[in-house]
Design a protein around this nucleic acid. Structure first.
Lengths: 219, 219
DNA sequence: AGCCATCTGGATTGTCCAGTCCAATTTTGT
DNA sequence: ACAAAATTGGACTGGACAATCCAGATGGCT
């Protein structure tokens, strides 16, 4: 009865851990491609190469698998954007990050949404637990972006009136909205435009190099 | 065998038309709330107060109902934003439109996504026909926004370098991304920020007789 | 080796659900 | 009024699906 939440691999043997991971990865793939509701556990079993008893040995029920998938995809998304995400503290860095995200879309031929965004769209209103986990994931994402912008602000590269926290939210919204439009139109353009527009805006809040007030405060 | 696509009411008697509309409206409500995959036709039958034979008299199968729902929701979304949507040709008009959209979110307590955006997220990769219809709907939405911005541009209120078409896409992406974040966090703030940021950007591209662009008003 | 927890296989159950069918009722056109 | 067409009621079917159960295999540990 080892039903720890999500990716916890508490008292599992290496083999058990591998099986569990195979289940989660298979479920994540299928749910990414077809959505949660359209992913049957039979499909998961087949792709993961396991039988019913394994599924229910490692997970309480389908919603526990969904929970694990959310955690898995959150890590996947955040780690996939490294090292860019940890240093979004300049316009060039933001543009490079943009290129990475657009590249992901292109590689997928604009199919599928955001691995966690589409889960949010599907689950936010039907599964309170899932919603909370996704909200936490998005907070982490937002925080990374925000920290970069705050660093710019503290270095005096952003105008005093600029609000790094709000700009971070706007960037994240541009990512999500851009992905959705790209998914529906099957073109990367909308996503490029959405991101470029917000980054352009941030650039317009940038103070010119010659006027940089150098402060040598710690942190 | 009167299975015209979507809202067509070809050779139907008034009673038949009413029944058909009741089905579509019920399906739209349920699919908005629970998603397409989680909406059973039994639920639709119950809410619409009809029996199996009616469903299959007016619609070929579930996907035909989905198709009708897409058309229905597209009209619902676009008409719900009138008259604002037809005249987004000034900063105050954009801000008023923003307030309307945020108001919708607030009225729904941040539950549910965009009536057509969430359909897109769920169906874009699984139903080619649905994807095409949704893409067309979004094009109409985008076109309305774009026309307003183009009018500003032609009146010389936007800087020569500003691209109204791109700004329209960015606004739409902000709406969609903002709604998603608001849905996940159950707060209207993300949506407000996303829209305000893009509108601020447009305002910064505004040419005024004398004044420099001013920062956004209080939220 | 040999014990015990961990892990695995697969048949099974009960429910839900899309779609079918046919007969009954109402509406329309003349 | 009366036939034809449109509309409606509800039982039924076959399949898919989440979840259960128990027997059997594996592997770590002393």
């Amino acid at each position: 009865m080892t039903n720890a939440p999500a990716l916890r691999t508490d008292g599992l043997t290496p083999k058990g851990r591998a099986t569990r991971l195979r289940i989660v990865a298979a479920a994540a793939d299928l749910m990414f491609e077809h959505g949660v509701a359209r992913t049957s556990l039979d499909d998961v079993k087949e792709l993961a190469g396991v039988s019913s008893s394994q599924l229910y040995h490692y997970f309480e029920d389908k919603s526990a698998i969904v929970s694990a998938v959310i955690e898995y995809q959150t890590e996947e998304v955040l780690s996939g954007q490294q090292p860019h995400l940890a240093h979004l503290d300049s316009i060039p860095a933001l543009r490079a990050w943009r290129d990475v995200l657009v590249g992901f879309r292109r590689d997928l031929n604009c199919r599928g949404g955001c691995p966690i965004g589409s889960l949010g769209s599907e689950l936010a209103d039907t599964d309170r637990h899932a919603r909370a986990e996704l909200a936490a994931g998005f907070r982490r994402w937002e925080t990374s972006i925000r920290d970069g912008l705050r660093a710019m602000r503290e270095r005096g590269e952003l105008a005093p009136g600029a609000k790094p926290d709000d700009l971070a939210v706007a960037l994240l919204a541009a990512v999500q909205g851009g992905i959705l439009l790209s998914q529906i139109h099957r073109e990367t353009r909308p996503m490029e435009i959405a991101l470029d527009t917000v980054i352009d805006h941030i650039e317009s809040l940038t103070v010119r190099p010659r006027k940089r007030p150098v402060r040598s405060r710690a942190r």
